[in-house]
Structures are given as structure tokens and as C-alpha cells.
């Protein structure tokens, strides 16, 4: 992209450049979700474990991750291995992805935990009395009810994730805001930044519709 000498840039060209950044944003978003959703469940099981050291460890991790800025976590994951173990992170993208997955897994784990705790003890006991095993109880009785309860808080968190992807630029990952900022700097025009904002807005609008649809789909029963 040789933009340095240009004086003028068309809307189509801006769109093309922003789309490349948006591709990176989307990739980060999807990979984070795919990894953090199941990892969150594991963290949740850990923090609910009857084995105290595990639950204590998980709760401490969740406390640290939720209690510190994501920005800081990205920096630590990227520079930490190099400074501490003399083993520098090769890929900036992977570093950001790891930080995001850990961060979001911790938030998701708390949502799962709330969902599991909100299913009454009676459901568990009814399943036990009918001879279901622990895993059958979890997958056939508890989890479906948890899913229904966690859709609203999950959708909030996932929409926040879309916007949080812009933090990736702190260690030089080229995402949507990064490329918009480059255009702004090179051509001394402001509107590409607003245009980038519109990308987030539309993406989140689609997600909101999708979650609304899922919520409606699960309205066939009340709890």
C-alpha cells in the first residue's frame, strides 16, 4: 500500500483498505469466540470444583483477569515471554489472540457459573432419582436450561468483544482502526474513522438481530 505520496483518496479505495482491516478484526473476533466459549466452560467447572486447590486457583485467575485492563494483559502476553523466559512471541496476532481468549474465557466462565447456579437443585435431584448419570444430567437437563438463561448476558459480552478487538493495535496488529488511522494520518481527512465506526455499528447490529432471534427461538418454554 503506497499511500504516502497520494494527495487524494476515493471512497472506494478507503472501503477497500478498511475491508482488509475489518477482515483481521473478524478473524480475531471469531477465533476468540471459538476458543473462549469452551475454555470458559472448563474454567467454570474448575471454579465450581469441590477440589479446593483447583477452585481456588481458578477463582484467583478469574479475579486477576477481570480486575485488570485487557490492554495490560495484551502487553504482558506479547512482551512477557521474551522478557521473562528469553522466548519472544513470534506472532503479534497470536499474542493478541491468547490474551483475548484468556480474558473472555474468564468473563464467560462467570456467566456460565451464574447460569448453572440459577438452575434449581430440584432439577439435579429429579434427574438423579430417575437414574441419570452426572454427565447425562449435565448435558440433557442442566446445560439446555443454562443456555436459555445465558443468552442475554452472553450477547452483551460478545458485542463488547467486537469493540475490544480494536485494542489489538496496541502491539501493532493491523486491524480496522489501525488502517483507518493510517488513512487519516496520510491524507489529513477525518471521515474514514467515522466510516470505520460504521463497520462496528453494522456488525453489532447484525449480532443484535441474531441474538434476538436466538432468544425468541428459545421462548418455547418458560423456566
Amino acid at each position: 500500500m503506497n499511500m504516502i505520496c497520494a494527495i487524494n483518496i476515493s471512497f472506494a479505495e478507503v472501503t477497500k483498505i478498511l475491508l482488509t482491516g475489518f477482515g483481521e478484526t473478524c478473524l480475531l473476533f471469531i477465533l476468540t469466540l471459538v476458543c473462549a466459549l469452551p475454555l470458559g466452560l472448563l474454567v467454570c467447572f474448575g471454579s465450581m470444583s469441590k477440589f479446593k486447590p483447583i477452585s481456588w486457583l481458578m477463582k484467583t485467575i478469574v479475579w486477576i483477569i477481570r480486575g485488570t485492563p485487557l490492554l495490560l494483559q495484551i502487553i504482558v502476553v506479547f512482551y512477557g515471554p521474551g522478557l521473562l523466559f528469553d522466548y519472544p512471541m513470534r506472532s503479534r496476532f497470536i499474542a493478541v489472540l491468547i490474551a483475548f481468549v484468556i480474558n473472555y474465557a474468564c468473563y464467560f466462565s462467570e456467566i456460565y457459573r451464574g447460569g448453572i447456579l440459577s438452575v434449581s437443585k430440584g432439577q439435579n435431584e429429579a434427574a438423579q432419582v430417575l437414574g441419570l448419570t452426572k454427565s447425562q444430567t449435565f448435558f440433557h437437563v442442566i446445560l439446555p436450561q443454562v443456555v436459555k438463561r445465558i443468552v442475554p448476558p452472553m450477547s452483551n459480552e460478545i458485542i463488547t468483544l467486537v469493540k475490544d478487538t480494536s485494542l489489538a493495535r496496541i502491539i501493532g496488529v493491523i486491524e480496522l482502526i489501525t488502517v483507518a488511522q493510517q488513512i487519516v494520518n496520510n491524507y489529513v481527512i477525518l471521515w474514514p474513522l467515522f466510516y470505520a465506526g460504521a463497520f462496528y455499528l453494522i456488525f453489532n447490529g447484525i449480532l443484535t438481530l441474531l441474538f434476538g432471534f436466538i432468544e425468541k427461538k428459545m421462548n418455547y418454554y418458560k423456566i
Binding site: 434449581s120 430440584g122 432439577q123 435431584e125 429429579a126 434427574a127 430417575l130 437414574g131 441419570l132 447425562q136 440433557h140 437437563v141 439446555p144 436450561q145 436459555k148 418454554y221 418458560k222 423456566i223
Partner: peptide, 22 residues
């Protein structure tokens, strides 16, 4: 149970068949 504890996400027939089918 006193308060039934039916599985709310399962239809009536599925409440009956869940355990024996599993």
C-alpha cells in the same frame, strides 16, 4: 417431589422418556 421438578425444556412426553431412553 413436592414441587414437581419437571424438566421445563422438555415436552411432557419427553419428560417421561428422557431417563428410560438414555
Amino acid at each position: 417431589f413436592q414441587n414437581f421438578n419437571l424438566f421445563p425444556h422438555k415436552s411432557v412426553i419427553a419428560n417421561l422418556t428422557l431417563a428410560p431412553i438414555l
